[in-house]
Nucleic acid binder design. Structure first.
Lengths: 191, 191
DNA sequence: CTTATTTTGTATCAATCAATCCATAAAGAA
DNA sequence: TTCTTTATGGATTGATTGATACAAAATAAG
């Protein structure tokens, strides 16, 4: 009945995510996106509506993927502490491999906190990270990996905060020694 | 011999800092600055050269002031641990009082890490924060406030990272309970 | 094939961007 | 005063911004 879309919407969001991730929201122009995505502006606006809406989709994708990776790390393994160490080390490694990139969610929190949709998405993801960590630490305590007098929720809040700090330090040219030292020190809160 | 400048350069940088702080670099236009500073564009460019140079001055001021506050907190007090707690609590309090604002240095690290001047200034300030913390913790160890087997440098790196995380969480709508819990958990690394 | 519907690509919009120009004003030196 | 020098502020620059208009092309149902 009608002409079929020539580009893959999913792939377009993926590439837009990549561009917003590297350059930020304001510094990424629609022309940049058009050039990178290889889609005409007419098609782009017909498919996504506006720059803000495309950004929202990109951020949503990033947040669910990122939180998903943490959940996968923590809920698949039996032993919690090694899994947590592995998750933190993986984040540090990502920052070291690609220091220019950082974390799209942290970028969103700092650059676009005044936008309600962005703020809501970031806050919701932070809560998910917190509750995932709290759940894992609760499990650790039940398993005897964590002392009974430790507070899983307080520790989860602490770790959530520390993780965001790592993303910032990664962009601030922190080296391997720095980040790994910080991770080891952070993990002593569990002892 | 020549006409005297009518505006206060120092105050102009101060107000520019305020604007960049709240809105970010890209989202702050020269027209915004002209309106906020009450200076004509001719005078502004004659005095500061470009938007980037004005931003550099604003960031420099913020960084030295911020690191200075931490140094003042840690090096004035005799007991290190209460001073460190007070410093972290003050940061959390600042985030809670003005959540829209966040930290200009964190914003700079995330939004403008690709600019060498910005990246250098941020990295240098991070190193100053780290060494200040390391010095304080070294002193704490000498005073018997910190166990001899603790590593002041690793702890300083950890705390530097945690502080940046707090700035991010403050913008992500973290509440008082969250931030205070995180601070208390972070401080247990010293035990 | 015809027709209805959607996509595509280009041209284009007004608005805004950072930056420059320049006539005028002001202030100290001679 | 007169002269030199700098500051001021508004007009203006060309480029770019996010977004829209629209004709041509493509698709599938009837």
């Amino acid at each position: 009945m009608a002409r079929t879309r020539e580009f893959d919407t999913d792939q377009a969001v993926e590439r837009a995510m990549d561009l917003f991730w590297r350059r930020g929201y304001a510094a990424t122009s629609m022309q940049d996106l058009i050039a990178e995505l290889g889609i005409g502006s007419g098609s782009l606006y017909a498919a996504f509506g506006s720059k803000e809406k495309l950004y929202a989709l990109a951020l949503e994708r990033y947040c669910s993927r990122n939180a998903g990776a943490l959940i996968a790390h923590l809920e698949s393994a039996e032993e919690v502490r090694p899994a947590l160490r592995a998750a933190l080390t993986a984040m540090a490694e990502a920052d070291l491999c690609d220091p220019e990139r950082g974390c799209l969610m942290v970028n969103a929190a700092t650059e676009r906190a005044s936008d309600p949709a962005t703020a809501d998405r970031v806050a919701a993801t932070m809560r998910l990270v917190e509750s995932t960590l709290a759940g894992a630490l609760e499990r650790a305590r039940a398993r005897g990996e964590l002392a009974p007098d430790k507070d899983p929720v307080a520790l989860a809040r602490f770790l959530t905060t520390f993780i965001q700090g790592m993303r910032v330090m990664g962009k601030a040219r922190a080296d391997r020694t720095f980040l790994e030292g910080a991770v080891e020190a952070a993990l002593t809160t569990l002892d």
